[in-house]
Design a protein around this nucleic acid. Structure first.
Lengths: 205, 205
DNA sequence: TTTTTGATAGTTTTGTTAAAAAAGTCAGGA
DNA sequence: TCCTGACTTTTTTAACAAAACTATCAAAAA
């Protein structure tokens, strides 16, 4: 049982890749199942053989991206010289991820509120991975004696992640947005680096 | 010249009060000009004698609320024993303002993106007042020698205000919202207090 | 002259329907 | 088991009418 068919998995991957390209280029709503099928020279019906529907296909792409992202974080756990390196790594990784998949996220802007729960599951997993990486870094730093012991590292990291999110949505000017414009991403990145600088000092003796 | 008619001003105030009540209770879109006029036992046409249109009436109420808020901040400039007191005051004042005018802001949720520029002018004025209060508090604290001198206090406060905004929109659970639910306001308040705690320590020697 | 209103003009929202486009299904072939 | 063409169902779009509301105005009242 399980094991799964190799050939099937390969085909699934091809579908995911083609879908990723389309979603990245044109966004969710401007991509049709016919177009994806066309890119792969297969019938639309075959897509439905491999994936139950369009939104679950999108989720599968999203999950793949998220898994890569999470894996990258996990691979770097406990590899940092100090707390700041860990924070900087998280911010850089996040920045790169958003930059290279920017258009993919139009699905978020489109559905604005009430996104499917699956999305939030993935967002939460990513959040947990970030939380894990950073709170481990804090614990390590405490053991080293470089910063003050805190009762609840997770709570502190949660707070920092919320704050970083604030930097993102406040973006430039007072107009608050759900998702920043592409041209503001670098400024956000810079501001975030400044914030963790202060934040880290706040944790030190 | 100018001086303006007393009686007219009083009537304008009455209209603003009645409108405030309606907007607070039912929100912008569920309030009609007929209802406001009805509350004041006047004709709808008279409202248009005093205010050019509905949205400018709403703005006038908003501006009044904002002016009170800003005045409150200005009255407390340089009255704090230390930096933390200033930050706590800002956070408390903001919290109270949101709590007591919660439903008034449905206009923001309604128009989501592209709000009229007048709104953003007011938001910016409030932001400037907060910036002014807090950066003065920082400068005072630097003069006292209680914290490290920083090149650009305004930049630091900007960062903090963005971070505080992040606490607001991240709210509970991962689902990011434009405006938090009423039942989360207290939790946001608590988290903000925790954040400034760390933030202030980050500014100290 | 300023304040007020009833009547009414103009605009936006809401609901309906029809056509087009896209999503999703299925019987059957390789 | 993998695949497709033809088909059905659902969603999107456009057009339009009715209703609700905003906004205006000529004229009355103060």
């Amino acid at each position: 049982m399980a094991a799964g068919n190799d050939h099937q998995d390969i085909k699934r991957e091809k579908i995911l890749d083609a879908s990723h390209q389309r979603f990245l280029h044109y966004g969710y709503s401007k991509t049709t199942m016919n177009e994806i099928a066309g890119d792969l020279s297969m019938s639309k019906a075959l897509l439905y053989y491999y994936f139950p529907d369009k939104s679950q296909l999108y989720m599968a792409v999203m999950r793949k991206l998220a898994n890569d992202y999470i894996k990258n974080l996990e691979d770097h756990i406990d590899t940092f010289a100090n707390l700041k390196d860990a924070f900087v790594f998280q911010i850089n990784t996040n920045h790169d991820f958003i930059v290279s998949n920017y258009n993919f996220f139009d699905f978020f802007r489109l559905n604005e509120q009430n996104l499917p729960d699956t999305i939030w599951d993935i967002v939460e997993q990513v959040h947990l991975a970030e939380l894990n990486l950073l709170s481990k870094a804090i614990k390590t730093e405490i053991e080293r004696g470089a910063i003050k012991p805190v009762e609840n590292p997770e709570e502190i990291i949660d707070l920092l992640l919320d704050a970083l999110h604030g930097i993102k949505v406040s973006a430039v000017s007072q107009k608050k947005v759900n998702f920043p414009r592409k041209e503001h991403l670098d400024e956000i990145h810079t501001k975030r680096l400044l914030l963790i600088d202060i934040f880290i000092k706040g944790l030190m003796y």
